[in-house]
Simulated assay, not measured.
Amino acid sequence: MAFALKPSPSSSAAFGHSTMVVTVPRRFLVRALAAATAASSVDPPTGRQLVLTTPRVLAASVPVANERALSVAHTLSRIKEQGKTALIPYITAGDPDLATTADALRLLDACGADVIELGIPFSDPYADGPIIQASAARALAGGTTTDAVFSMLKEVTPELSCPVVLFSYLGPIVRQGVASFTAAVKEAGVKGLIVPDLPYAETYVIKHEASTKNLELVLLTTPTTPAERTKEIAQASQGFVYLVSANGVTGPRATVDPRVKERLEEIKQLTNKAVAVGFGISTPEHVRQIAEWGADAVIIGSAMVKHLGKAASPTEGLKKLEEYARSLKDALP
């Protein structure tokens, strides 16, 4: 099925831009976004009508530390040089409420988190297991919106000593438009972005927009990712390379798949970037083992979310979160 492209009367050759109205089936939406480089807008009711403004000359840029704190790559590089393994906790924004999320960010920073991953709640978090799915549902039911998350972050990130990476599915990004979304992420003081349902072949437009705003787009690789694609991801990922420890969704597991050790060795032969392991990690024993295998960072999500979101009260949740985060930090070299 072909895309329908129509030049706009407002096209301006003098500025090296052209405006096109693009009508595209929903299943081709990401590919349509990949055709744009500067801005896009999506008709919310249908998700079909796009207005794409595309510059003819693209400037490639590499994210660097901005005015508030070190970049994710620089942060993890310093920890790696010290022979240590970084702790990257994940929590869902708005669970149980945004005020508690703000307190949790400050608390995790004080507990020694080296980078914090914050999830934008989404109605169809298909890469996540029951714990984070329920967390996102609670946040949405409580009225959490993407704009509210950005507003909260603008207040909190200047207080943090560690960088924040935003975890968002493609849906919220498409609804707002890539340029607008990444600008809001930048303004909120966030340093990086993870989009778990963004196919590698479709990363260009988001990576370009992120790079122009000094945001690092972190890419994921899995135990079944082919060797050649793993090499491409390792080269293209910014901030760090996210190694998913097991096939399937997020959630605690009894043991860590021993194949992670082999995958770590393979990826480290391809890049000098930090490699972080996530999915299914929940105990001090897990993080200690992964650190011994050579991971530069360990990501813990579902267990963090469970401690915070299922407590009898926000105060109790923060207390449990602090105890748990400190136990993991103490287990790392």
Rank of each mutant, 00 (worst) to 15 (best):
K261N: 09
E266K: 12
N247Y: 04
M1D: 08
Y169P: 07
R175M: 11
G94D: 10
G143P: 08
T182P: 01
A102Y: 01
P258D: 06
V185S: 01
L160N: 12
A276L: 03
V218G: 01
S313M: 04
P25R: 13
E209V: 03
R326A: 06
P63E: 08
K207A: 12
V21C: 09
G143M: 09
S61T: 15
I290R: 00
V277F: 06
R27V: 13
P7A: 09
K213A: 09
I116Y: 03
R48T: 14
N66Y: 10
E323A: 13
S313Y: 01
T23G: 13
R31I: 06
F181S: 03
A134N: 13
Y126S: 13
E202N: 06
S10A: 14
T222H: 09
L219V: 03
L118T: 07
N214K: 12
S11M: 06
P196C: 10
L243N: 05
V51S: 09
T283F: 03
E216K: 04
D95R: 02
L108E: 08
P45A: 12
K261C: 11
A38D: 12
P7C: 08
A312L: 10
I290A: 01
T222P: 07
L87W: 10
T92K: 08
R175E: 14
V287G: 04
G278L: 01
S10E: 14
S12L: 11
F150C: 02
Y242D: 10
T53Q: 15
K207E: 13
V249D: 07
I206A: 09
S180D: 15
L105G: 07
A137W: 02
L5A: 11
D114F: 01
A127Y: 12
S180R: 15
V241L: 08
G47K: 00
L50F: 07
P284N: 05
I88L: 13
K268N: 07
T101Q: 06
G309H: 09
F3E: 15
W293K: 05
H307E: 14
K80R: 15
K320R: 15
R253K: 09
S123N: 08
E292K: 11
P199H: 03
V256N: 06
L215S: 11
K306G: 02
E202F: 08
R106T: 12
W293S: 06
T145H: 03
K213G: 03
P89I: 02
L170G: 03
I233A: 01
L58I: 15
Q235H: 13
G301W: 03
A276V: 02
L308W: 02
S151M: 12
L321H: 04
A141Y: 00
L29K: 00
T145M: 05
